[in-house]
Design a protein around this nucleic acid. Structure first.
Length: 179
DNA sequence: TAGGCCATCTGGTCCT
DNA sequence: AGGACCAGATGGCCTA
């Protein structure tokens, strides 16, 4: 099975001339040490498995939190992990585009102090923005930022009218004037 | 039944 | 040394 076990189970023969009783005692002692080592390894492995399981659970919780802020239709559709990541990427891109277009159309009010707080998915709502970096996501090698949406090949595709579609609105007319 | 998705285990590597 | 992270392997469950 495991190389380590295979190596440890192989016996090394005693040199000749050692009394039989002493050899037997030595053999027993070695067996005890090996058993101890085995249980030690086993318990370490089990602890590591436990940590790994917890780590994956945390990862899944984070993924669930991400899912919960993504619009899906029908509402109870559960995105797979990869779909969640791809969709999130595209959703962020769509939001950025919307923001950019809105800024082009509307001059900011005089007392504008920045964007409103994001929707809070849970108690640690702040933590998911805690990096403080507005840097564009770069999940896809082919995408360099919000100005270059994901290709269908790499990250799936959400049309630029995604946000309108999310709200049940018809797509905007191409080249429609701001107002 | 094949294929997709997922959870878990495991050993290796890197970091503190 | 021990923990975190990662990728590969494996087996279970579900769906077309």
């Amino acid at each position: 099975m495991m190389p380590a076990e295979a190596a440890s189970s192989g016996g090394v023969s005693e040199p000749p001339g050692v009394p039989r009783e002493r050899r037997r005692r030595r053999g027993r002692a070695r067996a005890r040490t090996e058993a101890l080592l085995h249980t030690l390894k086993r318990s370490r492995r089990m602890k590591a498995n436990d940590r790994e399981r917890n780590r994956m659970h945390h990862l899944n919780s984070a993924l669930d939190a991400l899912r919960s802020v993504l619009p899906t239709f029908p509402d109870d559709t559960k995105l797979t992990k990869i779909e969640t990541l791809r969709f999130a990427y595209n959703y962020i891109w769509a939001l950025s585009e919307t923001l950019r277009l809105a800024e082009q159309c509307l001059p900011p009010p005089p007392a504008f102090r920045g964007p409103p707080a994001p929707p809070s998915p849970g108690s640690d709502a702040g933590s998911w923005l805690s990096s403080g970096s507005p840097a564009a996501p770069s999940l896809c090698a082919s995408a360099s930022g919000p100005s270059s949406p994901a290709t269908s090949e790499d990250c799936g595709y959400v049309p630029s009218d995604a946000l309108r579609a999310f709200r049940g609105l018809p797509p905007a007319a191409p080249g429609a004037p701001c107002r």
